[in-house]
C-alpha cells in the first residue's frame, strides 16, 4: 500500500507545530498502524530527518500508551481498538491520513504526537484508590461481592488510561476516565467507606487540571478502546451529588488522648 500522511510535528512543548506531509510507501496491509509509523521513521532516519515521536509500548492494546488522533477519530476508525491494534487493512490504498496528538489543554504536547497525560495520574492520586495499606487485609472470601457487581466493576476497571475520551470529547472533558474509576471502586463493597469522598475529590481534581465539563455527547464511549459506557459518568454524577449533599467537612485535631 502507498499512503500519504499529514502528521503534526512539534519540536517541543513550547515550540510551534504544524502539519507536515509524508509518503508511506510499500506498506503491508497486515502491518499495524504503529508498524507503518515504524517504517516511515526508518525512512526518515536514513534520509537524515528526525523521526516522528509517538508514544507506544505494549502494542497489544492494554498499556494505554499509544495515543493518536487518526483522521479526526481517537485511535482511528475501528471501534474498541487502540491505535496499536489498528491494522493497515482498515485503510484504502492511496489514502490520505491525518495524524494528530490528543488536543486537550490538560495534555500539553511534549513532542510531535507525544503528550503529557500526568493529569490523569493526579486525578487518581486525589482519590482513585481504596485505602488498604499492605498487610491489614482480611481473608479474601470474607467480603462477598455479587457476580453482577463484580462484572460491572470490571467493566469500568478495564480503562487503560489512554486519554482518548478527553481527546474525542468536544469539551475536552475526561469524565469517562474519572467516572470509570469512580464506578469501579464505588461498585464494590470495599470501596464504600470512601465512596463519596472519592467522587468529590476526583471531580475537583479533574476540574483543576483544566478538563472541560461533560455535556453527554457520548463521543468518549465510541472513542474508548475498551468501550466503557457513559453509564459510568452517570454514576460519577450520582456519587458526586450524594457526596456534596452528605459529606461533612472533615475536622482536624480531634487527636487521640
Amino acid at each position: 500500500m502507498n499512503l500519504t500522511l499529514r502528521v503534526w510535528r512539534q519540536a517541543g512543548p513550547k515550540a510551534p507545530g504544524r502539519m507536515v506531509e509524508y509518503k508511506a510507501a510499500d506498506i503491508s496491509p497486515e502491518a499495524s498502524f504503529l508498524e507503518m509509523m515504524d517504517v516511515v521513521n526508518e525512512t526518515l532516519t536514513l534520509r537524515g530527518d528526525e523521526p516522528i515521536a509517538f508514544d507506544h509500548d505494549c502494542r497489544e492494546g492494554i498499556c494505554g500508551m499509544c495515543s493518536m488522533m487518526i483522521n479526526g477519530v481517537a485511535h482511528g476508525p475501528n471501534r474498541g481498538t487502540a491505535t496499536c491494534q489498528l491494522h493497515m487493512r482498515s485503510f484504502e490504498d492511496g489514502a490520505l491520513i491525518y495524524i494528530e496528538p490528543w488536543r486537550v489543554r490538560a495534555f500539553p504536547v511534549v513532542k510531535d504526537l507525544c503528550v503529557d497525560r500526568s493529569a490523569l495520574d493526579r486525578i487518581v492520586a486525589a482519590g482513585g484508590f481504596i485505602t488498604a495499606a499492605t498487610g491489614g487485609a482480611q481473608d479474601a472470601n470474607s467480603v462477598l461481592v455479587s457476580k453482577a457487581d463484580a462484572d460491572l466493576a470490571m467493566d469500568a476497571a478495564a480503562c487503560i488510561g489512554c486519554g482518548a475520551c478527553a481527546a474525542a470529547c468536544p469539551n475536552g472533558s475526561a469524565s469517562l476516565f474519572t467516572g470509570a474509576k469512580i464506578s469501579h471502586l464505588g461498585q464494590l463493597p470495599q470501596g464504600q467507606p470512601e465512596r463519596y469522598r472519592r467522587a468529590l475529590a476526583m471531580v475537583e481534581q479533574h476540574d483543576a487540571e483544566g478538563f472541560g465539563g461533560c455535556t453527554l455527547h457520548g463521543e468518549c464511549q465510541l472513542a474508548c478502546p475498551k468501550e466503557i459506557s457513559i453509564d459510568t459518568i452517570a454514576r460519577m454524577h450520582r456519587d458526586f451529588l450524594v457526596g456534596a449533599a452528605t459529606t461533612r467537612e472533615e475536622r482536624s485535631g480531634s487527636g487521640v488522648g
Binding site: I130, A132, G135, A137, Q138, A150, A153, M154
Partner: peptide
C-alpha cells in the same frame, strides 16, 4: 487478600 482489599475486581 491484599488485592481484594484494594478493590481488584476478581471473577
Amino acid at each position: 487478600d491484599q488485592c481484594v482489599a484494594q478493590g481488584v475486581p476478581f471473577a
